[in-house]
Design a protein around this nucleic acid. Sequence first.
DNA 1: TAGATTGTTAATCGATTAACAATC
DNA 2: TAGATTGTTAATCGATTAACAATC
Lengths: 208, 208
Amino acid sequence: MTLPSDKTIGRLAVYRRLLLELGREGTRSVYSHELAAAAGATASQVRRDIMAVGYHGSSTRGYTVAALAEAIGEFLDAPEPQGVALVGVGNLGRAIMAFFAGRRPKLAISAAFDRDLDKVHRVIHGCRCYPMEELQRVVSERGIVTGVLTVPGGEAEAVAKQLIAAGIRGLVNFAPVPLHTPSGVYVEHVDLTASLEKVAFFARQGGG
Amino acid sequence: MTLPSDKTIGRLAVYRRLLLELGREGTRSVYSHELAAAAGATASQVRRDIMAVGYHGSSTRGYTVAALAEAIGEFLDAPEPQGVALVGVGNLGRAIMAFFAGRRPKLAISAAFDRDLDKVHRVIHGCRCYPMEELQRVVSERGIVTGVLTVPGGEAEAVAKQLIAAGIRGLVNFAPVPLHTPSGVYVEHVDLTASLEKVAFFARQGGG
DNA sequence: TAGATTGTTAATCGATTAACAATC
DNA sequence: TAGATTGTTAATCGATTAACAATC
């Protein structure tokens, strides 16, 4: 079976969030075009994305909210709760930790690392901070495969290398430098500077 | 003239950053393949992207670092320094303010807004914080067209509406909800949850 | 000159969109 | 049934990649 594209995976995460919200509001079923409008996608995309998770709707009642959310969860999530390692407990790192705290119990930042010894051996937003020396041990002992990089640009490449050596197979990179990683490691680069410059450019041209 | 794609604009921002770095190191010229390797792009992309800004290299010496950085700057930047409005001075908002503080003098977060009166009328990371009531006035008086949204999901849609009414034409949206904006407004959605779930998914499948 | 690179066009690739028979 | 939606395939679109003549 071929893996769905990363765009499909990203959209599935969005659908699930919307479905959980709809469920809380008491909505039982949705049509592809409703989900599409809420998610900023097209009905075609929604139907194809949902096909990819193997869930089937009804041509009269559309998709059952609870069952579809469940199916997406089974597709996206690991069977067991998965930990995430974050490196770089600066302003951005702490904000990311706060952002995810309690949001997704099955995918939580479970270990943070910093080379600054003042930030270490504390619990920040429910997450324990370790010195860099313990990175290899903690990450490999806990079988953590997902990392978040919030270190300064100059350190990013070296830290990524350490993470990968410890067993990390996927990284969200917030450092303002492109990362050079071996194949077999998935990197999502969240480039805040490029995003802001892009938006400023198109805003100046009169928007999208 | 047709506008370059948003991917080209994003890459140009990356090239410029690399060029400024190369300039500081004393490098005078680069070839497309060198820039490509550093930026995580292909040489073809680099050449086509540079064509879009109207700069021309030499077939023997490649591109002049300083001149190309200058040309990209003229293409991407407004003639005058551009202000940016940020709404939502929570953990993430403050981290974003800290991240951009001093980084790009010509494109700086110049006004922040929050409905919490405890956060207002202060200067955070060099930027003044105003109450929401002053949003319309400050944004339109200063001619700000670029915004950053770091409010909770439930408020995002309403705040985006206010920003657009005040004259904003481009938005970086960090709120975990898709935004419904009129055409003529460019939105870049930085979806932290979807990014982390995507990375966790591919990490579990054995990386990229 | 010989050789490598640029500018630019054509070929490829993948994702989005449109279309429609099957379904309830 | 009539009508709207799903599942799925074909057409379209745009971006990436490959290719190569022109250049220095």
